[in-house]
Each structure stands twice: as C-alpha cells, then as structure tokens.
Amino acid sequence: MSAAESYVTADGRTIGATVMEMRNITLRFGGVVAIKDISFDIREGEIRAIIGPNGAGKSSMLNVINGFYHPQEGEIWFKGEKRAPMRPHEIAHQGIARTFQNIALFKGMSTLDNIMTGRFTHMKSNLLMQAFWKGPAEREEVENREIAEKIIDFLEIQHIRKTPVGRLPYGLQKRVELGRALAAEPRLLLLDEPMAGMNVEEKEDMSRFILDVNDEFGTTIALIEHDMGVVMDISDRVVVMDYGRKIGDGTPDEVRNNQDVIDAYLGVPHD
C-alpha cells in the first residue's frame, strides 16, 4: 500500500490512508481494450473523480471495482488486502455501493422500498424468522426503517416516499438511486455520472448532496462526471482516462494544466 499520510483539506475535511488501490488493471472485451494497464488509488474520505471522453473506459473501471467485470490483468487492493475475484453481491457486502449511468432502480417499488432494499447488507435475520415476522426480524425491520427515513429526510424526498419510482421524473430518480446506495452506509461509494442529463439547478442540488454526504458521513466517493466545471469544483483528486489509458492523475489544478489532458479534451464537446 502507498504510505500516504492523512492530511486536512482547505475546507477542513480529513483525508486518510489509501482504502482502495487498483494496480495495473487491464480489461479486454475480445479485441477491444477497455482499460489498459491503469493504476490509481482512492483515499479514505476523499472525493475522487474519473473523467474522460465517451468510451474512455470510465464505466468499465467502476464495473471492475464493484465486480461486474473481471479484469484479465492487475490487482485490486481494498482495505489493505488484495481482493480475490468476487461476485458483485459479495463485493456489496464488503462495503461498496454504487449508482448506474443509466439509472437502475427497482421501478415497481416505492422510494421507501428502494431505499430499504439498499439496507440489504445490514439485515441479518434468517428466512424463517422473516416468514413469521418474529423477534429479531421485526426489530430489524423497524430499526432499518428508521435509518431509511433519515436518508429520505437528508435527500429531501419525503413527498415521494410512497411513489413507485418508475413514475418519478429523471432528476428525482437519480436522487433516489443515490439514496439507495447511501442506505448501505458504504465504505466506498461509486457514482457513475450522477449529474448526467440534469439541468443546471438539478446539478447544483446533486453536487450539494454529494458534498454533504462526504462531509457529514465522511463517505469515500469515486465518481464519474462529464461536466468539467462540476468535477473541478467538488473533487479532491482526478483521474483522467482516454482510450482506456490513464493520461492524468492529480488535483483539479494539476490536471487542468496537463498538456495530454488538454489535448484529449480539444474538440471533444462537453455536455
């Protein structure tokens, strides 16, 4: 592990040691190399952005982290240990939660039920107890329900608690999806383009929620974002990808002045 020491940011948040480290990751789909020999780390408590043009391999990287994709080469170190190949649901139990580029909510379920489902890894009662709603199962429902309600308050979505999420407008769906991931109280939160397709006001709201999550709960966040302005505003460090390679890594200022990064972004329309 890199022997990074903890430090305090300008706005007073503490950034700790490395919690996740990707070492020389290569991921191929047949002939397509989606990720080519990339290494980077994520430190406790930081907001780490991954940026790059469309098709650069950003989503693939998140999919590697949460186990949807298995890289052909490289090592993944999480919480100081090298991670054996695992299924996505096992990785969720290790404390990694995520949202998706194209919202993946349980559309037929209410906001509350979606967020309760996000509590899955924290609910331990066995099937028989649940079937009879007895003892621990009942207590567990009540306790987790309270936590879910807190998240609903935090995200200011009380008015849609009971609404089936499939009926919600896009921006609110994105917010519920964030809520479901937060409900897991993850050690590492992965957000794939949380602001894509939003208007300016919605983007500001979402930025504020992401900053608040990080600030209030100290949650470590890795996020993919297209909007350079937003990225520069909210992230502590940025990885820049292009055609599956890493072409930049550093603070927003360092990255902004990196010639490779400037070149990669020239002529690429920002949306």
């Binding site: 299924r87 996505p88 349980f106 559309k107 037929g108 899955f120 890894t121 897991a184």
Partner: peptide
C-alpha cells in the same frame, strides 16, 4: 424481479 444488476449491486445473490 425488477432489475438484476441493481439487485446484485445492493448485495442480493
């Protein structure tokens, strides 16, 4: 029943 990927992502086998 709703979404396999999302279900996996919250830890459901």
């Amino acid at each position: 029943a709703d979404d396999h990927q999302a279900a996996l992502s919250v830890g459901i086998s």
